[in-house]
Design a protein around this nucleic acid. Structure first.
Lengths: 331, 331
DNA sequence: CGCCCGTTTGCAACCAGTTGCAAAAATCCC
DNA sequence: GGGATTTTTGCAACTGGTTGCAAACGGGCG
């Protein structure tokens, strides 16, 4: 079916090594040889079998792209950036969906069977055990959007969620609120824990301000809406720092549905700055997470590890910033 | 680095074939042999190299998942469903992002180099040449979300966009509008062309009703908003059938921004029924596209083609239906 | 016990490439 | 023109598995 190197060699009347060499750059081939081989290859429609060659070279150029985050729209952008960035460097993303997987073993085995050159774990909610499992299997790993403190022995690229929490608290304090709240994602998610820690630590400097804390069951519209509906039945806070933008939009929907208006009755600040946040009918004040830079940097780190698998692990933390829109009163 | 079959054979004191057979189901191995080999494999932490075996078996279980649609949120769900569905069947998705690619040749060559067993083209906007190119290269192809009329020799799974156009027109006519409009996606997209054709054909039965047609530059929020802003300067229609949900939401934003209200001043009907459409603060009346079923069926078709690559091509068309929400007046 | 038949096992060739080494060819220099 | 040096080429062994074939094995039966 497929044309092989051997057939090209026969047609060009040369040895198999010669053909192999014309398709390996850096190998020594004369101009005449190159021309003859390329002609034969073109005539036959030959293209080398990357997997066969990986057998001897030990490199497949396959990168496992592992995630469990197939519901948050920002991850569509993340996948877009990763696939394009990897492709541009001649690498191929092998996508692994961990949504229903709890045991790292299976994924590790699978990716090893396919001899991936490296693994990018793109998730803010996977337990650190996953990244570690890959590293222990001797596969270069980068944990994009991960938590740096918890896994000091795995490369991490992301943001400082604790600092984001502080930043949100400061943004609310600048508005002079006397009762603010944290509406987190799932209580078990490290990103939620860190954001709360930062939020609380900053609020500790304002003892006169009342602080309420609650959690949504997921980083989703429905969970945000449900939790906000519940909160509205009680005496609610004047402003909320929501776990992420999707959650914020759910909360907004609940608030508007209750006939209250934003930001005059309740203020909201989200986190991520997903594309939708700047849509005019949402217009969410939020903390911008530099996705583009995180992905870019993750890829660079991955590429660096391909040449030096024992590279000393590092954490790359990118600063975030508040994007002022319409869900907090102007300063 | 990695443990090989040979090492397992040596440790178990058996031949390499014996080890290979214990890991190939359907092969003849005695119980005693199986136990010894499995013990040795476990001790060494062996797992077979899928790529090496693909050399002789001719099957990699790699499926190219090709798309250029990394901006429409429904595709995150599409990717979720595809990756899970393929994984469940022991297949591995090799993701290919065609966003910046215009020439099918490159993608075909790349996927052939990786000896994929099949290719799923998931896109409603890629020109049919892409699917054809894969088929011509002898690779089984399924075009999910594709147009069936234009590529009779490639398997297609999707919806009947012409019928959707008619359906939208009927929904508007039921409301008794006297001036309706089609606000399409990019004029070159086959999905837009088909939807317009259906819309126009149904409207032909209502000669007294005025019909306007215009196109947004992309299936995106910004494009929908921009086009609607332009339309609002003129004498606008009473109701619009928008190219898809994202476009609809952009249009909604423009309408609301202009101080008009939906559905009393202007009605909107979208297409796709993405998750966001049912969010209470959007609440978009739209035509539901059965994504789940389309993906499921595409995978089944792909699996069937793996055993019978010459399978006679078929088009699988799934019915859509109007989902009544808040952007058209109740009937 | 010997024969027959069905399983189990190992040998060796093969899949599609790469690569170290040495022979052959081309180039350089005197 | 001849010898030394460099470049190009082919041979053969190797990567990590699979598989057709034949030999070895084991059990049942007369």
């Amino acid at each position: 079916m497929a044309v092989t190197l051997k057939e090209v060699a026969e047609r060009a009347g040369v040895s198999r090594s010669a053909v192999s060499r014309t398709f390996t750059d850096g190998a020594s081939v004369s101009d005449g040889m190159r021309r003859r081989v390329e002609k034969a290859a073109r005539d036959l429609g030959y293209s080398p079998n990357a997997l066969a060659s990986s057998l001897t070279t030990g490199r497949t150029k396959l990168i496992g792209l592992v995630s469990n985050n197939f519901h948050n729209p920002i991850f569509l952008e993340v996948f877009d950036l990763f696939t394009r960035g990897l492709q541009d460097r001649g690498l191929r993303p092998l996508l692994v969906n961990l949504s229903q997987e709890t045991n790292p073993e299976n994924s590790v085995r699978m990716l090893r069977q396919y001899s991936v050159d490296g693994v990018v774990v793109a998730s803010s909610t996977l337990p650190p055990g996953f990244s570690k499992a890959f590293r222990d299997a001797g596969v270069p790993v980068v944990n994009a959007f991960g938590r740096y403190a918890a896994s000091p022995d795995v490369h991490v690229v992301g943001i400082d969620n604790v600092e984001c929490g502080r930043m949100a608290a400061r943004a609310l304090m600048q508005r002079g609120y006397s009762h603010v709240a944290f509406l987190g994602g799932p209580e078990g998610a490290t990103s939620t824990q860190d954001r709360l820690a930062g939020f609380a630590s900053e609020m500790a400097a304002h003892p006169g301000v009342r602080v309420t804390v609650s959690f949504a069951t997921a980083y989703s519209f429905d969970a945000g809406r449900a939790e906000m509906l519940r909160l509205l039945q009680d005496r609610h806070a004047q402003a909320y720092f929501c776990g992420d933008d999707v959650l914020s939009i759910g909360a907004l929907s609940a608030i508007q549905g209750a006939g209250l208006s934003v930001p005059s009755d309740i203020g909201i600040i989200g986190l991520n700055d997903m594309e939708m946040a700047r849509w005019e009918n949402i217009n969410l004040t939020t903390i911008h997470q530099p996705i583009r830079e995180i992905v870019q940097s993750s890829i660079e780190l991955m590429v660096a590890m391909l040449t030096d698998p024992l590279r000393y692990p590092e954490a790359r933390i990118f600063p975030c910033m508040v994007v002022e829109r319409g869900t907090l009163p102007p300063l």
